[in-house]
Nucleic acid binder design. Sequence first.
DNA 1: ATGGTGGATGCTCCA
Length: 263
Amino acid sequence: MRIATWNVNSIRSRIDRVTAWLERSDVDVLAIQETKCREDQFPGLELSSMGYEYAHVGLNQWNGVALISRVGLEDVATSFAPDQPLFGDPEVLEPRAVGATCGGVRVWSLYVPNGRELDHAHYHYKLAWLESLRTRAASWLAEDPDAQIALTGDWNIAPEDDDVWDMAVFEGKTHVSEPERQAFRDVLETGFTDVVRPHAPGPGVYTYWDYQQLAFPKKRGLRIDFVLASQALAARVDGAFIDREERKGKGASDHAPVVVDLA
DNA sequence: ATGGTGGATGCTCCA
């Protein structure tokens, strides 16, 4: 079974690239972030005609996450916990998490809040969101230590200096601050592993490149998209890669798909 | 190749 995660930066503007990528990638389950559309705008027909079931949550032009699967899609959840933090004025539950059981694996498509600036309300929201996720993930494993769980998505955190093209540029910025990195490590410590890194060692290996300043051809990226697997799932991983080819050319997302193969 | 962001929206925000 092959699972993948990809921040597509608008499913409506990217649907042709998404279907073309699916056609050539033999993916069974894809977690999508930043669909940037409402439920009624989601291009479900294009995906279902390819044999994929889908679950999507989207309220407006921001955020939005989906799961598509051709190996079953059961027990869909549109938030990871009853206390998943809210944001905005008025406060709302933003569409940043969707989970489903696909081929026996509990897969989550997660779009961690960006944080915007250190000490911004959005930054505190990001940390609270991650803490809530950590607590919930720990409870899932406490319930069933053998659960096969994949926490996939755009984490908006570069956990190590090697995940950043130039640390000096990120001095005082989000994505690399110690509280964010600690929050990421705290999720790992509940019993999850980055299953891609062993197959895509750095430095200089990234999943995201800004559209500006020719960042991609200049190799100026960040590694912020991850597949974190529970122990039982990690034991099944027999390969992984970041598909940076998909970042090339006109009309690419600013993120590359991240792919994991399970035995 | 001598370049210099893109998406959704609506006159700006978000990433």
